[in-house]
Simulated scan of single mutants.
Amino acid sequence: MLNWDDVRIFLAVARDGRFVSAAKRLGIDHTTVARRISALEASVGSRLLDRSPRGVALTLEGQRLLGHAQRVEEEMLAAAEDVAHADERLAGPVRLATPAGLGTYVIAPQVRRFVENYPEIELSLIPESKAFSLAQREADILVGLHRPMHGNLVSQRLADYWLGLYASQDYLDRHPPIHAVSDLAAHDFVWSVSDLVDFSEIKVLDAIAKDSHIALRSSSVHVQHTAVASGLGIGLLHGFAATRDPRLVAVLPEQVSEMRTYWLTVHANYRSMPRVRAVIDFLHGLVSEGRPHLMP
């Protein structure tokens, strides 16, 4: 029989890649982590981790154990929630991971309402344009641009939204007029970092201004928005943020736009938890209120 405490420590090390950071996460000494990992390896009769000065890496046996350990963790958490929240109390932590634009411009300005309605829910908002793993508990609720096709996950369409070309009035006053897509070649652009964006955004740039001058590239949608509003160039911005900014003017709105979809995903075991359900309902409410700004 495996000791669940040892398996729990193994999960933390597998996720953090280092004994020291896993120990901080668990609130124990790193020597205890090393000792418990050794005990677990003795129990299974195999080496689970390869140690090096750069950290640790899972062996083949460790990768096999990881899948089982994650499923056990899910069941343990679900059991704890089922017992602890039988009275339907809305309390406890919820980690919400979203794309940067949605988290920054739509959710963050309204978080105060949520906190006032649910003061015992500890909401963590992570507005970053990177991949998060629900299986590894990096988030409880994930909003992304793609619908996951694998795993014990439940996904639903949260909202369609669009991106369009915008510039400041100051920039437009200082540069040649724009009447057609062909006119864009003579203009400066603020764009994403090429190797950090999906292929669809690269196709948009190629279609409208492949040979245009890129004045600034940034991986941050907020930096792009701010730079465009300052008059640096034209940018492909989130409509729900740009339409609310009086400094920005739409450029060729009838000819250039890019529609995308936000997908809301949660692990099947957690979707009925009261606190998770409260956050999901909050998100749907925000989308319903902001729909005129999400789609033109």
Rank of each mutant, 00 (worst) to 15 (best):
M1R: 08
L2G: 02
V7W: 02
A14R: 10
D16A: 13
V20I: 10
S21T: 15
A23G: 12
K24C: 04
L26A: 10
D29G: 15
R35T: 09
S38I: 10
S38H: 14
E41N: 06
S46P: 00
R47I: 11
L48Y: 05
L48N: 02
L49W: 00
L58V: 08
T59L: 03
Q63Y: 02
Q70I: 03
A78I: 01
D82L: 14
A86I: 13
R89W: 05
A91E: 14
A91G: 03
V94P: 01
L96D: 00
R112N: 10
Y118D: 04
I121N: 03
S124W: 07
S129E: 13
K130L: 13
K130M: 15
S133F: 04
Q136P: 01
Q136I: 00
L142M: 11
V143W: 05
L145C: 02
P148L: 06
V154P: 00
S155L: 09
Y161A: 04
G164R: 03
S168I: 01
Y171P: 02
H175A: 04
H179Y: 02
D183S: 07
D183G: 02
L184F: 02
D195S: 12
I202R: 15
I208R: 02
H213I: 04
L216H: 02
L216P: 01
R217F: 00
H222N: 11
V223Q: 10
H225T: 03
T226H: 05
S230H: 02
I234F: 08
L237W: 07
F240N: 03
A242W: 04
A242N: 02
D245H: 07
D245G: 06
V251Q: 05
P253K: 05
S257A: 14
T261N: 10
T265R: 01
A268W: 00
N269Y: 12
M273T: 08
P274K: 13
R275S: 07
R275G: 06
R277P: 00
S288W: 03
E289R: 14
P292A: 09
